[in-house]
């Protein structure tokens, strides 16, 4: 959680300094939920995070370097400058890179899970993360229904952070709670307060275990508040003070720290030390990536196909 937050803050700083090309999208306020998903998945599982899942990505096994290289356009990163910021992953490691079309990755997770079942790999789960905005898409409906029909071990995690960009949840759905949709699809629903780490860990563990043990798709609605703009270009002036002052507006990192102190797992010095350690880790990674080469358009192969012999060449004037 702390690493995710610190890394996000670093990206925001670099963005403001003009060192990042394109957008920066933070997970502020969603780290407890995100990490509860990422850290409870195992090797062999499938994970399709969304834009506010820096904490979960790191917990799933993404390196700080992969994240930094993608944001900073290093040619050495997993996306090699072909895609940027939150659009990154390593599909062969079960880490599905997002496309911008919301809800689209749920069916991709379904397909990976179906394939694993066909190959005899049982006891795996796939987690797909979306926001409440994506529940309005056809892709959401089609893929959740598909997972239910095939009884796939899908955990669909909906971060209901009250706003899809600027659109409030009231303009996104009319049911009382999103979790009410679950029985309509024939899947098990779970609700959790999304800024409470202890609750998130418990509820996600329950959902992930249920999917892993043959319980079919699990739908988790986490209620929380996005504590930042949609991206760093957005001042989020549309989020009311009333929202910010509500219990949902409390920072999940602060709540988690209180929970750790209360449980005697760590004291405040330890928490401070964690933060100092990750600050150094992040600074080292950024310093390294800043020295790395950018993609070279003249070295780029401009080939979209794996079957290179089928790639068309155009414009002989360019040759």
């Amino acid at each position: 959680m702390v690493l995710g937050r610190v890394l996000d803050e670093k990206f925001a700083t670099l963005y403001r300094a003009g060192k990042i090309h394109g957008g920066v999208f933070l997970g502020r306020g969603q780290e407890a939920l995100s990490v509860a998903v990422g850290m409870q998945l195992q090797p062999g599982d499938v994970y399709a995070p969304l834009i506010r899942d820096q904490a979960g990505r790191l917990a799933f096994g993404e390196t700080v370097l992969d994240a930094a290289r993608t944001y900073m356009g290093s040619a050495l990163g997993p996306m090699r400058g072909r895609d940027g910021n939150v659009h990154r992953g390593r599909p062969k490691a079960g880490y599905i890179p997002m496309i911008s079309h919301l809800g689209s990755n749920i069916a991709v997770v379904n397909g990976a899970l179906l394939a694993k079942r066909m190959k005899g790999q049982n006891g795996v789960v796939g987690a797909a993360c979306i926001g409440e905005g994506a529940t309005s898409t056809g892709a959401f409906h089609e893929s959740l229904n598909q997972a239910a029909i095939e009884c796939l071990p899908l955990v669909l995690v909906v971060a209901n952070n009250q706003f899809a960009y600027s659109t409030p949840a009231s303009r996104q759905f009319a049911c009382e709670a999103l979790v009410d949709k679950a029985p309509g699809y024939g899947v098990t629903g779970h609700s959790v307060v999304g800024n409470d780490l202890v609750q998130c860990l418990a509820v996600l563990r329950g959902a992930i275990d249920a999917a892993r043990n043959g319980g079919g798709p699990q739908f988790v609605e986490a209620t929380l508040l996005r504590l930042c703009g949609h991206g760093e270009h957005d001042d989020a002036g549309y989020i009311s003070q009333e929202h910010k002052d509500s219990p949902l507006g409390r920072d999940c990192l602060k709540i988690a720290e209180e929970q750790l102190l209360k449980a005697g797992v760590a004291d405040s010095d330890t928490v401070r030390q964690w933060r100092n350690e990750v600050v150094l880790e992040v600074d080292d990674a950024i310093a390294k990536v800043q020295r790395e080469p950018a993609p070279d358009p003249y070295q780029e192969d401009w080939c979209a196909l794996a079957s290179r012999h089928l790639q068309e060449t155009h414009s002989h004037l360019e040759d």
């Binding site: 990755n105 990976a112 899970l113 394939a115 893929s143």
Partner: peptide, 27 residues
């Protein structure tokens, strides 16, 4: 088990195929 009826969900059908392909299948 290898010729599977799909629901009327063309988006999810293709998404499913992509995920299966990532896992090494050839749908």
């Amino acid at each position: 088990g290898r010729v599977i009826d799909a629901p009327i969900s063309e988006d999810a059908m293709i998404g499913m195929a992509v995920g299966a392909a990532v896992e090494g299948m050839r749908p």
